[in-house]
C-alpha cells in the first residue's frame, strides 16, 4: 500500500495549483459568459433605422453571402467610445460590413455620438427598449457578433474590442467565417 501512493496527495495538490494558475494567468475574463448563440442562426428581427427615413434592419441583412459584424453600442457607454477606433479600422482598412445596433439609446444621442466619432456602420438601427439585445443574449454593451454569409453566428466578442483584440480575435473570426 505504501510506495508511490504516498505522493498522491502531493501530485493532486500540484495539479490543482497548476490548474488554478493557468485559469488565473490565462487570457480569460471570469465575468465573461459564453454566448448561447454561437453556432446558431442569428435572431431575425426587423429594427428601425437610426436616421429618420433610413433603411431598417431586415433578416436579409444578415445573409449577405459575406461575413457581417453586428455591434451593439450606446452613446452612454464609455467602453463603446474606447472600441470605436477599432470599428473604424474594421470598416475602413479591413472593409468589413458592420451593422450597428444602438442599445437603449435615444436616437438624437446616438446620432450625436456617431457625428462626433465617425460612423463605421453600414447600417445603424435602434433598439430603444433593449428587446433586440435580449434576443441576442446581450448582457451589456458593447458586444460584437460575427455572422457568416448564411446568417449563422460564428463568434461573439464580449466587451470592447480594444488593444490587440481586433487583430487576435475579431479579424481571425471574420476570416474563419468566410
Amino acid at each position: 500500500m505504501r510506495g508511490p501512493w504516498v505522493f498522491l496527495p502531493l501530485a493532486a495538490f500540484v495539479a490543482l495549483v497548476a490548474l488554478m494558475g493557468a485559469m488565473l494567468l490565462g487570457d480569460r475574463n471570469p465575468a465573461e459568459v459564453d454566448s448561447a448563440l454561437v453556432g446558431r442562426a442569428a435572431p431575425t428581427l426587423t429594427l428601425y433605422a437610426l436616421e429618420p427615413g433610413g433603411e431598417p434592419l431586415v433578416p436579409a441583412d444578415l445573409r449577405r453571402g459575406v461575413p457581417v459584424i453586428v455591434n451593439f453600442f450606446a452613446s452612454w457607454c464609455v467602453p463603446c467610445r474606447a472600441e470605436h477606433e477599432s470599428l473604424m479600422a474594421l470598416a475602413g482598412e479591413h472593409k468589413v460590413q458592420i451593422i450597428g445596433i444602438a442599445y437603449k439609446d435615444k436616437p438624437a444621442a446616438a446620432r450625436a455620438f456617431l457625428e462626433e466619432l465617425g460612423n463605421p456602420y453600414d447600417k445603424v438601427v435602434l433598439d430603444e427598449s433593449g428587446r433586440a439585445g435580449i434576443e441576442w443574449g446581450v448582457s451589456g454593451v458593447p458586444e460584437t457578433f460575427v455572422i457568416d454569409g448564411d446568417g449563422m453566428v460564428r463568434y461573439r466578442h464580449w466587451g470592447p474590442v480594444v488593444g490587440d483584440a481586433l487583430e487576435t480575435r475579431l479579424l481571425p473570426a471574420v476570416e474563419a467565417a468566410r
Binding site: V33, D34, A36, G137, S139
Partner: peptide
C-alpha cells in the same frame, strides 16, 4: 431564457 443566455 436559456435559448438566449445559456444555462448560466
Amino acid at each position: 431564457l436559456v435559448e438566449r443566455y445559456g444555462d448560466w
